[in-house]
């Protein structure tokens, strides 16, 4: 498997291609075990430079452990990885940490110190040149310039997340790991963090985002991987939908159609149909752009009054639930 490719542990799933031309992260059959407990197993994927890569999974799936492993805090039990161009080895720990930044789930700020003092400390830990300039830029990026002198303990949770993000940006990292950046935030604060991530993506920062908020992943990520100890699938959200669910067209008419089998049979690109209750129908199609005009013409010819016709979209949540429910059934939970 060459750079730019990604693979899944599911044999039937084709590899998805990383978006960036270069590879920022490459993980090859990586596993981590704590004694008898398996945190994650045989995980392989790549992330391109400038890509926003989402890592989804239920609680305890191993998302945080993967971030900590790639962040050199934990030693993998087996497998290999390359992080920001360097092999993941204990000898490269310092250099890897110089090139990346990690924002843990909990901001971990020094609450008695001011926002600026927290950032000063980390600017020194990263040995950032022109520290005060970089701190000012980071604060401006997260819209906290006017709160620089405030003690972190006086800030709301959302603002603390923003400080943690500013701290992660101080070193101008090649790869930014965000572990559940919106966990515990109210919708307004979560939206602010989303906007910041969108801003970082526009600046070309490679972002590895773990979350169990599916709408967050769908909105922000170029590609997503679904993990539940092992990697269940990987790809762009639209790819995953197409891979797991057939494309459908939803139709609603003013009254039930008398002979729907006769109306829908033999239409181009229509593979089948089923009633969705009352005067609603779901058609399985191979190509909606071909099927939709033909279906409309057939309905008009049959004298049906069409109220609504459109492509039915499965969400990333449907994909997630489809994959994770397999695991739940298998484990008997």
């Amino acid at each position: 498997m060459g750079p730019g490719e990604a693979e899944s542990n599911r044999g039937e799933v084709p590899p998805s291609v990383a978006i960036g031309a270069d590879v920022a992260l490459s993980v090859d059959h990586l596993s981590k075990r704590f004694g008898d407990r398996l945190a994650f197993d045989d995980v392989s994927f790549t992330v391109g430079r400038g890509e926003v890569f989402g890592f989804l999974g239920p609680n305890g799936a191993g998302k945080t452990t993967i971030v900590r492993t790639l962040g050199t805090l934990l030693t993998p039990t087996s497998g290999s990885a390359t992080v920001a161009g360097l092999p993941l080895t204990p000898e490269n720990g310092v250099e890897i940490r110089r090139r990346i930044a990690v924002m843990p789930e909990s901001p971990g700020l020094y609450l008695r110190l001011s926002v600026a003092e927290n950032l000063e400390c980390f600017a020194d830990l990263y040995e950032v040149p022109r520290a005060s300039e970089r701190i000012a830029n980071a604060l401006e990026l997260v819209n906290l310039t006017d709160r620089a002198g405030d003690a972190c303990g006086t800030l709301s949770r959302g603002l603390r997340q923003r400080v943690a993000l500013a701290r992660a940006l101080l070193s101008d990292p090649e790869v930014l790991f965000l572990d559940e950046p919106t966990a515990g935030l109210d919708p307004v604060a979560a939206r602010e963090v989303h906007e910041l991530i969108v801003g970082l993506r526009m600046r070309g920062v490679t972002i590895f985002l773990t979350t169990h908020r599916l709408e967050e992943a769908e909105r922000l990520c170029d590609r997503v991987a679904i993990l539940n100890t092992t990697l269940r699938t990987i790809g762009r959200p639209a790819e995953l939908r197409d891979r797991l669910f057939p494309r459908t067209i939803a139709i609603t008419t003013a009254a039930p159609i008398r002979e729907p089998t006769q109306v829908f049979a033999g239409l181009p690109a229509v593979d089948g149909w089923r009633s969705d209750g009352g005067a609603s129908y779901l058609l399985t199609v191979s190509d909606p752009t071909v099927a939709a005009p033909a279906v409309t013409r057939a309905l008009v010819a049959a004298g049906a009054d069409v109220l609504e016709i459109g492509q039915s979209q499965h969400s990333l949540e449907d994909v997630y639930l489809e994959l994770i429910s397999d695991d739940v059934e298998a484990s008997g939970r």
Binding site: G71, V94, E95, P107, F122, E127, R167
Partner: peptide, 14 residues
């Protein structure tokens, strides 16, 4: 205990 150690350990500090 206060959760401030992990962010420090993610920096290049030895």
């Amino acid at each position: 205990q206060h959760g401030t150690l992990e962010p420090v350990l993610t920096t290049p500090i030895r």
